[in-house]
């Protein structure tokens, strides 16, 4: 599998990363190298092996339904690029 320049631009757009035209060729080479490395995994025969979602052989830990967090609007908003009173403020997004 190898990526063409259009796919590289699309991936960048989906990830909201600005890529200048001269960078596309370089990224294409780098991404293809990564894909080539991952391709090696296809050499392993995994027929009949259940997909693995984690390396840890343990059960998912669950939490009780108790309120233990929140009530810290100032701390949550502290890193906001922009705010208005108790709200985050962002460039207008409206349909």
């Amino acid at each position: 599998m190898s990526l063409d320049p259009a796919t590289v631009r699309r991936i960048a757009a989906l990830a909201r990363i600005r890529v200048d035209e001269p960078q596309v060729a370089q990224l294409q080479t780098e991404l293809n190298a990564i894909l080539g490395w991952i391709e090696q995994l296809n050499e392993v025969d995994v027929d009949g092996v259940a997909p693995l979602t984690g390396a840890a052989q343990m059960a998912l830990r669950l939490r009780e339904d108790v309120v233990t967090d929140g009530g810290m609007a100032e701390a949550v908003l502290a890193n906001a690029p922009d705010r208005a009173g108790p709200f985050y403020a962002v460039p207008k997004v409206v349909e």
């Binding site: 922009d82 709200f87 985050y88 403020a89 962002v90 460039p91 207008k92």
Partner: peptide
């Protein structure tokens, strides 16, 4: 939740 009617150029976000 986004509020769009509080400001002419910005949307307000409540998480």
């Amino acid at each position: 939740k986004s509020l769009h009617d509080q400001h002419p150029a910005k949307s307000m976000i409540d998480l």
